[in-house]
Amino acid sequence: MNLKEFVYFFLRNKKIITALCILGLLALVSIFGPFLTSYDPLEFASAPYQPPNRQHWLGTNTFGQDLFTQTVYGLRSSLLVGLFGGGLATIIGLIIGFLAGYRGGWFDEILMMLTNILMVIPTLALLIIIAAYLPYRGVLIQSVIIGLTAWPWTARAVRAQTLSLKTREFVDLARITATRSSKIIFQEIMPNMMSYVFMVFILQFGGAILAATGLDFIGLGPTRGISLGIMLQQATLWNAIQLGMWWWVVTPGALITLVVATLYIMNTGLDEVFNPRLREM
């Protein structure tokens, strides 16, 4: 597919445009949101138990912390976890899958054995153990933990892609022109895998956000700071629903759902762009 066709179908795909708009908006909120509030996310700002009002747009919680402030900061850290954690998982998966597929032989078998072992270990259990052993946890550390555990399926998928690409005739042609392996990898194979890698990254992005929320929710989130998952955890801990404080739960829950759903829609859209058979004319 050439660039013109890509741009055409990309811009004409309603799913992609909608998803891009939503994601752009969320990114803007997470970047500029903190400037719109004069509070600190953990500061006891005002009277507790306030439903949304002029002063506190999204109300306050049991401690009188401003929930709007918490939400924008929380969104920021959730998106960061997605970016770093998902990015790391994609890169590791890409490298391992690529090496396994390209080199083949025993090298492939060892790497795939490792991958399969990691794949059958329940990731959440592993995450809990690692996270519980770390006395200090920030957003970055959390991303690394998630990234280090989420790559196996990516590696498998990338390996399969590489296996099919390396038997293409243009790769053979490059080899019989005595082209160096590095050139074959980066100039012949990689460019043909970009679309696929991009879609994998988006899936990993959403996966990392969900994994982080899960960790936060069981109390293994960042030890300092705030995230959407921590907001949900605290809301549950302090019986927000039983006390009728719906505003404490609804915003973070809805935001997480929105982000993950949007990413999913984005991926379906991209699938349509890259795969002509799914395209609607």
């Binding site: 597919m1 050439n2 293409r168 005739e169 243009f170 053979d172 042609l173 019989i176 022109t177 005595a178 012949e188 460019p191 043909n192």
Partner: peptide, 20 residues
């Protein structure tokens, strides 16, 4: 040195050229 003397042509002219 070898490939200077020994070359190949393949079956599928559509997959032999990198589209980009």
């Amino acid at each position: 040195k070898y490939y200077r003397n020994v070359q190949g042509i393949f079956q599928d002219p559509f997959s032999a050229l990198n589209p980009v």
